[in-house]
Amino acid sequence: MKVTRRQFLKVTGATAAGFALVDLGFDLQATASAAKELRIKNVTPTPTVCPYCASGCGLVIYAERDANGKFVKLLSVHGDPDNPINQGGACSKGAAMFNLREIYDERTGEQMINPKRVQKPLYRAPGSDKWEEKDWDWMLARIAERVKETRDSSFIHKEKLEDGNEIIVNRTERIASIGGSGLDNEECYILSKMMRALGLVYLETQARI
């Protein structure tokens, strides 16, 4: 099988529009035979950016997909040679990003989902000493109810100013939100918007700590 670097890195999917990886000039065929042909069968590389420090190094996710393009498993994660910030480099954390999703079993060497990843929503009842698995609908509905209960019972709609006039303040001080610096911008944005619409003023992220 002769694969050029360019074909190798061809990315599918609508969001990849405008994606142009430059030729790296290494001979994949040699790499392919050395790494056994199976390893790179049906591989799709996808560029991402490291989730650790804020340097913004590019990483490429190499994944195996089936004939229908459905994701099967990770093959490896490498520094993105096209990203001008790191030009292919990765520190120990970036190089370990594979483990964020998948690991090799210590004894059998079998590739598996990282067992520390939580795969189902979990619920802990007041006073309980265990987690219970729940479905998404149940969880989201119950959270929405809790939010409404707390908001409505603590809501300050108007306040009196020193000059005697009233001001609409629309806030609750009994709900807080922290974190978000590991989320994408679009996620941070809707989080910020929703929390403020609910009237939250205790709204903080890791920039503060």
Partner: peptide, 17 residues
């Protein structure tokens, strides 16, 4: 040299009181 991959963005989106 900021410490979280999108702490800049979270600040831009005002996840701060």
């Amino acid at each position: 040299l900021r410490g979280e991959n999108n702490v800049q963005g979270a600040t831009d989106m005002a996840l701060l009181f």
